[in-house]
Design a protein around this nucleic acid. Structure first.
Length: 522
RNA sequence: GCUCUGGUAGUGUAGUCCGGCCAAUCAUAUUGCCCUCUCACGGCAAUGACCUGGGUUCGAAUCCCAGCCGGAGCACCA
């Protein structure tokens, strides 16, 4: 009895059990916990990336989780670029679109896209209001001096300035009358708060370096993340903030501002850092950036880089990443994501569509070896997909063939060239023995992949572990660029290009190849 | 140093709030078997965990205390 039949039968004998079964199946699909106090149709969340480069794998967690909740609660997904530091975390002008593209690849589309650097006037207005409420003061103490006072629980001498002076000095900050480091605007919190991290934090500071965006290049007085983000979350109606544990204290800091304004703070969830196994390269935007600049990596989509673009180029579906990311749950402890989990999800997605081809690898420790085939048909005809015979067969010319050395049988032994037939290794040649499949089924002859020596394509297979060269069967020329195929007994790859241009960095095509593929996973 | 926060199989996760149905769930991983002209897909099975020590209790992964180990913040970064 198959699944639908079983269900039908159950519906006849115990209709109430069916409801129970369906209810269970539904909750099981929710890998992520329910959001606290979430009203369907009234959930607003934001991803707040810093646009300082394309995303690495760790960044995928935010859109994956927000997007998944958005779908569950029919909520809103805001993408807000927190680009308020033109200097130390200087925005990269290409990164805004690069990040939106990465989100799109993951299968989500933000309902709104905002840039903090467009909203500076709004932050100024709220700063003025906060000053009038007595909630902020201008402070000209050097950071180190303030830090000492703060750690001792002692106030800055500027703390009790009257609002008029504060207002004047803040306007002077806005007007660019101070140089970097000369003046800040601090939020008046509780200078004796038991957590030193919350004491009178900086809301605005002066940055001399102009913002790279032309629209924002004239501003010198910039808000700090906690101020900007706190104001924006309220103004854009964010109901649920999801962020990393590095921002654990942010909510506590921002609450002081919310209290001054009489606002209600959103629900907050924190999660730990994600580490990903399998990569040698550290998962950090700046590290990857400098490796690319040094030519160690061929770009953001180099298969050795732990970036979204890299796995995308390898033919891994965004959905596979989203599934793995949501499976990580929402725990506050640091987690390791096993790439094998992404691979397992991806195999599910691509196996059915991936046509099969042969690639004979030529590696130092397992070189490709050529042999003449004596006798037998002119070509082999393995199917394009074992589960879809309707897709037809490939044609692989025999004659002189190439196999991987480790697949070469000892002299006098037999091997089955898949889709062709059984041959015996005799005096450096393959003598055709026949096509009786019982030799495989009952006599234990191994089945191996092979390609013709002459008609095959010079192939470069790029992967996490580095580049591998080899020869692909001619029929792969029928595969479209950008499709995922499976090299039997090797793994899934994405067809990247035919007759590729040479690359400049370390690794990549030399220009002599007929085909470049990117290796996804076994 | 001060302040947060966390510790369930290799990895991730459920269970912890409201103690018993938990000799602990699911996924992935690994191994073996079946299927198979792929080491894919599919099917079956095995492996493998409650940080430690006390306490409360008839009973503790769950409550309490202490300890150990980890992560984060204490920036004019995000």
């Amino acid at each position: 009895m198959d699944e639908p039949a079983r269900r039908e039968r159950l519906a006849e004998i115990a209709p109430d059990l069916i409801d129970e079964l369906e209810a269970e199946a539904e909750t099981d699909e929710h890998v992520l916990p329910d959001l606290p106090d979430a009203e369907p149709g009234a959930v607003v969340m934001r991803a707040a990336p810093n646009p300082n480069g394309p995303w690495h794998m760790g960044h995928a967690r935010m859109p994956a989780v927000i997007g998944t909740y958005k779908e569950r609660y029919d909520g809103e997904f805001i993408c807000r670029f927190d680009d308020t530091d033109p200097e130390t975390k200087r925005p990269d002008l290409d990164a805004y679109d690069a990040i939106l593209e990465d989100i799109d690849y993951l299968g989500f589309e933000p309902d709104r896209v905002l840039k903090a650097s467009d909203r500076v006037e709004t932050y100024y207005e709220h700063a003025r209001e906060l000053i009038d409420l007595g909630g902020a003061y201008t402070c000209d103490l050097p950071g180190e001096e303030f830090s000492e006072l703060k750690n001792a629980g002692k106030p800055s001498p500027n703390r009790d300035k009257d609002p008029e002076t504060v207002r004047e000095e803040f306007e002077a900050m806005v007007d660019g009358e101070y140089a970097a480091g000369e003046m800040t605007l601090r939020v008046k919190t509780d200078i004796e708060h038991k957590n030193p991290a919350l004491r009178d934090w900086v809301a605005f500071r002066i940055v001399d370096t102009p913002h790279p965006r032309e629209e924002a290049a004239d501003y010198r007085c910039w808000p700090m993340l906690d101020f900007q983000s706190g104001i924006d979350d309220h103004l854009t109606g964010v109901t649920h903030i999801i962020r990393g544990i590095d921002l654990q204290d942010s909510a506590k800091r921002q609450r002081f501002v919310y209290d001054y304004f009489g606002w209600e703070y959103p629900e907050v969830l924190h999660w730990g850092h994600v580490q990903i196994d399998e990569y040698d390269v550290k998962m950090s935007t700046s590290t990857i950036k400098s490796l690319i600049e040094d030519g160690e990596l061929t770009g953001w989509d180099d298969p050795r880089a732990p970036t979204i673009r890299s796995v995308r180029r390898r033919g891994i579906q965004g959905e596979a990443i989203v599934e793995s990311m949501t499976e990580l749950g929402m725990s506050t402890s640091d987690v390791d994501l096993a790439m094998s989990s992404v691979y397992a999800n991806n195999r599910d997605l691509v196996d059915d569509g991936a046509n099969r081809y042969f690639l004979v690898r030529d590696r130092e420790d397992d070189p490709a070896v050529e042999r003449d085939v004596v006798g037998g048909p002119e070509a082999g005809h393995p199917p394009l997909h074992p589960s879809h015979e309707d897709r037809g067969d490939r044609t692989i010319p025999a004659g002189r063939v190439v196999v991987e050395e480790s697949d070469l049988p000892a002299n006098g032994d037999r091997v089955w060239l898949k889709g062709f037939g059984c041959v015996r290794h005799v005096r450096d040649a393959f003598e055709y023995v026949g096509d009786d499949i019982d030799m495989v089924r009952e006599e234990g002859v191994d089945v191996v992949h092979w390609v013709p020596a002459d008609e095959s394509l010079e192939t470069l297979m790029r992967g996490v572990e580095g580049d591998v060269r080899g020869r692909a069967e001619p029929a792969i020329a029928d595969a479209d660029v950008d499709t995922v195929v499976q090299f039997e007994r090797v793994g899934f790859v994405r067809v990247d290009a035919f007759d590729p241009e040479p690359a400049d960095g370390a690794g990549g095509p030399t220009g002599e190849e007929d085909l470049v593929v990117y290796y996804a996973h076994p």
